[in-house]
Amino acid sequence: MKWRLSAIAVALAIPAVGLLGFGLTRDPGEIPSPLPGRAAPQFALAAFTSGAPTSMHPGPVPKVDSVKLADLRGQVVILNFWASWCLACRGEHEALATVASRYVGSDVHFVGVLYNDAPSNGMRWFQELGPVPYPSLVDPGTHTAIDYGLYGVPETFFIGRDGRVAYKQTGPVTDSLLEAHIAELRAQPVAATETKGVPEVKP
């Protein structure tokens, strides 16, 4: 046994082990999105429903025909892509309806976008699972989904007052996750240069 040669071999083996060890600390399923930190892609889409009062928010819900992202500048937008055929969306429906009910009429706007699905299926879904108090949009040709680099449904984008995507959630959201991101984004001041010329949004 020649120990010096052994030591050289060990020195060569250690980086390989280190690499594997590093790999263990990573999540390979995590798909990075280039969006966080960048301006949210603009869209203007027709709504197939304005949403309806929920048990948590029995009051009226504003009537909306379409949503244009530019109109919401200066406010917090939670953009949720979903589909009636998506099982995981079922799991987050309750959380979205509950949290959104707390913010009706505030500076936090929830927007749903139906992905690869028919509005009639979407309406049936609301009948079955209960309504949400915010508009749901149709995305013809899934152009908006493509702009947002959608990987699957559900995916939720958190857009700050500066019009930038602050966070992206792949997979279902929960009550606490929504509240945490909303609290952070509301605390963000509106940069002076950014607010200039932003139209007042009617409640």
């Binding site: 052994s6 030591a7 060890g21």
Partner: peptide, 30 residues
Amino acid sequence: FTQGTIGYYFLFFIAFVLVGSLALVAGHTP
């Protein structure tokens, strides 16, 4: 099959096998 801690057991094992066997082989080459 993603599983919590089992990866670290495997990491230890692979480190042991890789380092141990390379050291043995290198030591015996002469």
